[in-house]
Simulated assay, not measured.
Amino acid sequence: MKTHFKTIVISDVHLGTKGSKAKEISRFLKQYRCENLILNGDIIDGWQLKKSGSWKRKHTRFFNRILKMIEQSHTNVYYLRGNHDDFLEQILPLQIGRLHILTDMCYESFGKKYFITHGDVFDSITTNLRWIAYLGDVGYTFLLWLNRVVNYHRYKAGLPYFSLSQYIKGKVKKAVSYIDDYETELAKMAKAKGCDGIICGHIHKAENRMIDGVHYLNSGDWVETMSALAEDHEGNWQLIFYREIDFKGMHPQPNPTLFPHPGGNVVPMRQVSFETRNDEDITPPSIRL
């Protein structure tokens, strides 16, 4: 099993919420090494932290892991702002050593060019009707709480994990249509920018496929799917799902040697384009508007 990659992309961690799988993603990043780590938006959930969210030690450990990757593995980290961490707009663009905070970026590798964006700027709801987006966030928070309750009892009964929100998304025609339109519009945008592919997040649906000749990649999320995108040293992209990783079969990695600097392969763009199961986790969420 590969544990060294050229680039890893993660998004939608939503630190500060009960649904965030902070422990799992820290464990994931501890097992893998990469030259470039792209945090593609909604890493910190500023919306929930303003309302009923809370910052815990496990959320801080995630950033400690990122710092260790920078210091020990000399990883270049690119943090792109999302809609839930839009507070970053106040400091964009910013570079501190190997840490870059940007709106979006272009990534060139093995002769191919990818436009990387969180994806919310292509969502008319989050850009034009912010109050509806906040209302939807409240509904999604409740759905995640209900999902924890359902899976707590499924676990007690010896049943596998079941994603209630993914099930609902797959059954509601408007949700399916929205996702299809979203992916198609992003593919069109990549073509308009002269890119071979596009890498995004936002809709919490991991994907790796071709759309009208454009390579569409979505890193999924770390609330339910727990997935990441990884590019190997031959330019091949793959989705890695946390639940499919055999951690027992993975050998501990020694401190890696200095990775060669990508040499300008990653080119930031400074302008916006179109713009563990705990009993405490099954207490009803505090919802305030």
Rank of each mutant, 00 (worst) to 15 (best):
K156V: 14
T60V: 08
G19D: 04
I8Y: 05
D45W: 05
R270L: 13
V150K: 10
L49A: 02
L99H: 04
K30D: 03
L88T: 08
L94G: 05
E244Q: 11
H4G: 11
K188C: 08
R243Y: 06
M250Q: 06
T75E: 05
Y114R: 05
I199Q: 05
M189H: 12
R288K: 14
P256E: 06
E234P: 00
N208F: 03
Y114V: 05
S73M: 01
A22K: 02
K30R: 09
L99R: 03
K191H: 13
Q271S: 02
Y114L: 01
N255L: 07
H14W: 04
L164S: 06
F87K: 03
V13L: 15
Q48T: 03
E89N: 11
Y140Q: 10
Y134K: 06
L186C: 09
R98S: 12
G170P: 12
K56Y: 08
I44W: 04
R81T: 10
F122D: 02
L67G: 03
N151C: 09
Y182C: 05
L49Y: 03
I199G: 04
I96V: 13
L258G: 00
H251N: 08
R154I: 12
R33Q: 12
P252E: 12
G41E: 01
V267R: 09
I211M: 10
E207N: 13
L49H: 00
L102R: 03
R209Q: 02
M1L: 11
I179K: 08
N64H: 08
G158I: 15
H74S: 13
V149R: 02
P284W: 04
T225R: 10
I70G: 00
G158Q: 10
P252V: 14
G263S: 07
I240L: 15
R27I: 05
G139D: 08
D137S: 15
R148Q: 09
L229F: 15
G194E: 03
L80C: 11
L135Y: 15
S227K: 03
W145E: 11
S227T: 13
C34I: 10
R243V: 09
I199V: 11
P260W: 10
E224R: 12
Y107Q: 04
E280F: 09
D120T: 04
H153A: 15
A157R: 06
P93T: 04
A175L: 06
F62C: 07
Y152W: 15
D123H: 06
